[in-house]
Structure formats: C-alpha cells, structure tokens
Amino acid sequence: MKSVLAILTVVVALVGFWYAACVPMNIHEAAMQAQRAGEEVTPAEAPERRHMGRISLALKNTGLWSTVFSQERPQLPAPHQVAQEFWKTTWGMIERGRAFSKRSLILHGWITLSATLLGFAFGTALGIVLAVSIVHSRAMDMSVMPWIIASQTVPILAIAPMIVVVLAALSVDDIVAKGVISMYLSFFPVVVGMVKGLRSPDAMQMDQMKTWNATRTETLWKLRLPSSTPYLFASLKVGVAASLIGAVVAELSLSSNGGLGARLLAGSYYGQTVQIWSALFAAAALAAVLVWAIGVAQKVTLKRMGFAQ
C-alpha cells in the first residue's frame, strides 16, 4: 500500500509539472488571442512578444494564465484536454454507435494491435525455434549468436520504411508488412532470453538427466523448456513492447490505412496537438495492457509450475 501512495505521488507530481509547463508553452498563443479579442497585453507589440522568452512573457501576463488550458491548437495541451479528446474518440464513439468510424481511436488502436499481435506471435515462435537450435547445435551457436548480439546494437527501426515499400511492391497485405517489422523487433529479445533460459539448468541437473540416459528431446521437454519459462516471460514483456513500437513506426510509412502511427503523422501534418497526444496515450495504454496481460500470464504460469515468486 505504501508503494501505491508513492506511485500516486510521483504521478501527481508529473501531472502537476505538466500543467505548470502549459503556462509558458502556450503563453504566446494566449497573448495573440487575447489581443485579437481586444484585451490588454504587455508588451502590446506582437514582434516584441515573439522575441521574448516564454517564462518572462508568462510572468508579465499573469491574467492570461487561465486561458492557456483551453486553446484549440495549443503547443502543449493540458492533461484534461487530452483526456477529453481520448474519451470523446473512444467511449464517446461507442455511445454514438460509431466505434469503428475513421475518427475513433478504437479503430486505429485495433489496427495497430492486430499488426502488433501478428508480428509478436511470429516473432516469438521464430525466436524460440532459433534459440532451441542454437542451444543444440554448436555450429549454429558459434556462427549465428554473435550476429544476433551484434544486431541488437543496430537501430533496426531505421529499416522500417524500406521493408514497407518492398513488401508493398510485392503486393503484400498492409497488416503483414507491419507485422513483419513487429516480428523483426520482438524476435531478438526472445532469442537472447530463451538461449539464456534453455541454458539455465545447472550442471548437476544436466548430469542427472544423463544418468537416466535421457535423449536430447526428453531433456529439452522435461528440463530445458520448463526451466526457461521465467526467462521466456521476461523476454516476452520486452518483445511485446518492442513489437508495438515496430507497428507504430511502420504506420508512419503506411499511413493510408490508419493505425495509431498514422494518427500521429496526421496530427503532426495539421498541427492537431491534442490528437497527437491522445494517439500517444492510446499507444501507451495499449503497451500497458499488453505488458500487464503478459505479467498476469507470467504470474499464473509460474505459480502453477511452482517457481518461487
């Protein structure tokens, strides 16, 4: 309970900081609007204001502070503006029976989620298969493993636009193209984690299997795979987060069919900051739900398998 309070404190502090930041971030716009409405603004000259620092302008116009939280296109929208937009484009859409309209975050979230899950599933499967073969073949281990480790230091996301274009040229479905990038990103943590996990049984446990004359397959199923479960879940958490990032970034290049990444891009074209932020929060919520779901599966599975928590 103590940590709940601590987390709340940190979150409240962050939100408070956000509200405070809205004042200097939006003060220029607020001053312009106030002047158009015929109000007194210091300094009165627009060019003079433009050259002023945000904070000093904010300090000179304390009267304008109340207007910085409700602008149409703020530099930094206030948290409640983002929350309103988020609510309007999710639950609000459901209420109006248009849950899957183009303006609904549910639709875009679903598009991103399906690509994420597709890529994640294939990435995980591929990762496990590769890890098993690495653990069983010394040649695989020595030739492939160094490259896998080295490739983790490479900014793989940079390839996303290219993969999208190549796959589009091969007239592959969009969701598959996005899935490929997600797969690519989630596959690395799974391989690395699973190789570690499959090797986690100690020498004594392996020797014991040997004394029973167990085959390699039996050792794999009865010893290696069960002992690798905690490692698997740890990498799945990293993998699913990476997979989502892959899908979002892929959507920057494949924006015609929607998705959270497409919303981000559209928002940035039209200066719709509130829309960008709410898409961002939708992505964050999606990531949180995915990681949480794997966390629950992890807890249940590990408990059933008798791993100490």
Binding site: L264, I276, W277, A283
Partner: peptide
C-alpha cells in the same frame, strides 16, 4: 526511499512505452 518506490514502477512503465511517438510533438517544439 519513498520517491524511489514511486519512481521505479513509473520509470519502468514509461520505459516500455512507445516514446518515439513523442517525435512529432518535439519536432513541432
């Protein structure tokens, strides 16, 4: 220790988010 207990889970959570998405906002700023 109080702030640490709060910051660790929040930080871990934020670290798993698709922060690259902040890019359009920061480019705007």
């Amino acid at each position: 220790p109080f702030l640490q207990r709060g910051l660790l889970p929040v930080g871990n959570f934020v670290a798993a988010l698709p922060i690259v998405g902040m890019a359009p906002i920061l480019v705007m700023w």
